[in-house]
Simulated assay, not measured.
Amino acid sequence: MADLPDYYFRIRENGALVFRLDTANRQQRIEMEQIATLNLRNGEVRPHGQRALTEADRAEIGRWMKARAELLARREVDDILRTVDHLNLTTQWAQSKAADAQLDAVTDALLLAMHDLRAVLVRRKADRLTKSGG
Rank of each mutant, 00 (worst) to 15 (best):
residue 1 M to R: 13
residue 2 A to P: 00
residue 2 A to D: 08
residue 4 L to T: 10
residue 4 L to Q: 08
residue 5 P to K: 09
residue 7 Y to G: 03
residue 8 Y to Q: 11
residue 8 Y to R: 15
residue 8 Y to M: 05
residue 9 F to R: 06
residue 11 I to K: 15
residue 11 I to V: 11
residue 12 R to G: 00
residue 12 R to S: 00
residue 14 N to C: 01
residue 14 N to W: 13
residue 15 G to E: 07
residue 17 L to V: 02
residue 18 V to L: 03
residue 18 V to S: 04
residue 19 F to S: 08
residue 19 F to A: 02
residue 20 R to A: 12
residue 20 R to F: 03
residue 21 L to I: 14
residue 21 L to P: 02
residue 21 L to K: 06
residue 24 A to Y: 11
residue 25 N to G: 08
residue 25 N to Q: 09
residue 25 N to C: 10
residue 26 R to N: 10
residue 27 Q to T: 13
residue 28 Q to N: 13
residue 28 Q to I: 03
residue 28 Q to D: 08
residue 30 I to Y: 02
residue 30 I to V: 13
residue 30 I to R: 15
residue 31 E to N: 09
residue 31 E to P: 00
residue 31 E to D: 05
residue 32 M to Y: 03
residue 32 M to I: 00
residue 33 E to W: 10
residue 34 Q to W: 04
residue 34 Q to N: 09
residue 36 A to N: 08
residue 36 A to I: 05
residue 36 A to H: 06
residue 37 T to E: 08
residue 37 T to Q: 08
residue 38 L to G: 02
residue 38 L to Q: 06
residue 38 L to K: 11
residue 39 N to H: 15
residue 41 R to E: 10
residue 41 R to D: 04
residue 41 R to K: 15
residue 42 N to W: 07
residue 42 N to K: 14
residue 43 G to H: 11
residue 43 G to Y: 11
residue 43 G to D: 07
residue 44 E to Q: 14
residue 46 R to H: 08
residue 47 P to G: 01
residue 47 P to T: 13
residue 49 G to T: 13
residue 51 R to D: 01
residue 52 A to Q: 15
residue 53 L to E: 07
residue 54 T to K: 03
residue 54 T to A: 01
residue 56 A to M: 04
residue 56 A to G: 01
residue 56 A to Y: 10
residue 57 D to R: 06
residue 57 D to K: 03
residue 57 D to Q: 07
residue 59 A to W: 05
residue 59 A to E: 12
residue 60 E to H: 13
residue 60 E to V: 02
residue 60 E to M: 10
residue 61 I to G: 00
residue 61 I to M: 02
residue 62 G to F: 02
residue 62 G to E: 11
residue 62 G to R: 14
residue 64 W to H: 14
residue 64 W to V: 07
residue 64 W to P: 00
residue 65 M to D: 03
residue 65 M to V: 02
residue 65 M to P: 06
residue 68 R to T: 14
residue 71 L to G: 02
residue 72 L to T: 03
residue 74 R to N: 11
